[in-house]
Design a protein around this nucleic acid. Structure first.
Lengths: 220, 220
DNA sequence: CGTTTATTCAATAACTTTATTGAATAATTG
DNA sequence: CAATTATTCAATAAAGTTATTGAATAAACG
């Protein structure tokens, strides 16, 4: 094989993998699949895509082994093919937030509108968890909490929050977390809690970041 | 800002960064720029692109801050914008080689044709360097050796190799390295040396991987 | 200060990617 | 085994990407 043909083959195939990731919808799907397993119709609903379109995107990701699927009754459950895929997404995400001012600004603006001024990183949370008076709030959908959550976290999906305020302390600190830095569940939870005088902040990262760091995980 | 618009903005901008990388030529350029700084015409020559086309690709990479450039006399010297860019390329490369059987096969076939059967990783090289009788051969162009190379490595660009065989030992081990796993300089050097009875193997990784691991680097 | 020269721009045609339909498929379950 | 149902396929139009040309630009240097 000639040198040029060799390089074309190698860089071409690597570009194929990269191309599978180079689409806003597919990045959103990867970010979602970091939470666990989802059927095509769940993915379609969560991302606002049609089922056929979501399926098409999943085929592209599957074609380069970024996701895999197994059948479960009537459903095909899709998941990230391996932890490297999450590492790649995390690297891209960090790159965007630290090196692309425009992305950091969009996130900042969104949170400022909701008075989410302060956030906690996982490292900062770990220090606070040593003390008392921290309540961890998992505001993702129940099914995602069920597939895995932070130790001692209380499951309180966003649509239940206002009905269950009684369970929350008015002193101390409430730390809400969700899927990751671009997930809005925690932002909205913090907004609603702070408006009602509860001491709430959001965790900057999400459950998959906790898991990826090999920190202890509870399943129901 | 509405939730959907927010997500579209965030994932869209991250996809823009990914799209800049999602092209065989631009990946090849990133792989090349990992060696150091290059003018547009050098990049065009090394990749077989026209100067205008290389410039266009560089604009795309520059547009998302993956590369940067400064003027040096008549030339604009391009380089990777920061070490994260190399980390991303390295992750993609490793993913391709370990998870995409087709890429590993292309590399394997190319090397088998050249009787490059055995390779050494950096970790394996570090062990061998403790002992005696290992000659390190940098077979990249002189200018890249000049910008940085492994300690005690001898510069012997491929086109000088056959004229300078006298400088090499017939016993012990010759370890040839170049730009990285997809660079063919070391494969060709090993082929030529072994055909003439010299005990040569190639280093699996390249100079940028050594550098990225914070191992000591010499500059002339 | 005009000439040289590396780089970029602009226009274009070929090709690829995308979302949208509505129909087809294939596995499950009663 | 037939009905159900989640998923995929196929066709299509719109939008985006790419390499090629040849001209334009802008910085450097004598």
């Amino acid at each position: 094989m000639e040198k040029r043909a060799y390089k074309d083959a190698v860089y071409g195939q690597l570009a194929d993998v990269t191309k599978a990731l180079a689409n806003p919808r597919r990045l959103e799907i990867v970010d979602l699949l970091a939470q666990g397993e989802f059927a095509v119709e769940d993915i379609a609903r969560e991302t606002g895509l049609s089922v056929a379109n979501a399926s098409q995107h999943l085929q592209v990701l599957k074609g380069v082994q970024l996701v895999s699927a197994t059948r479960d009754g009537h459903y095909l459950r899709y998941r990230l093919a391996n932890p490297d895929v999450y590492a790649a997404w995390q690297l891209l995400r960090t790159y965007g937030l630290t090196r692309q001012a425009s992305i950091a600004r969009v996130v900042q603006d969104f949170r400022t509108q909701r008075d989410v001024l302060e956030t906690l990183t996982i490292d900062e949370l770990l220090v606070k968890l040593d003390g008392e008076g921290v309540v961890l709030l998992d505001v993702r959908p129940t099914e995602e909490y069920r597939q895995g959550h932070l130790p001692r976290a209380v499951s309180m999906p966003l649509d239940e929050l206002l009905d269950r305020l009684g369970e929350l302390p008015r002193a101390g600190l409430i730390v809400a977390y969700c899927r990751g830095p671009f997930c809005v569940f925690a932002d909205e939870a913090v907004q609603q809690l702070r408006q009602r005088g509860y001491p709430a902040v959001r965790l900057e990262e999400g459950f998959p970041d906790w898991q990826h760091r090999q920190l202890p995980v509870e399943t129901v």
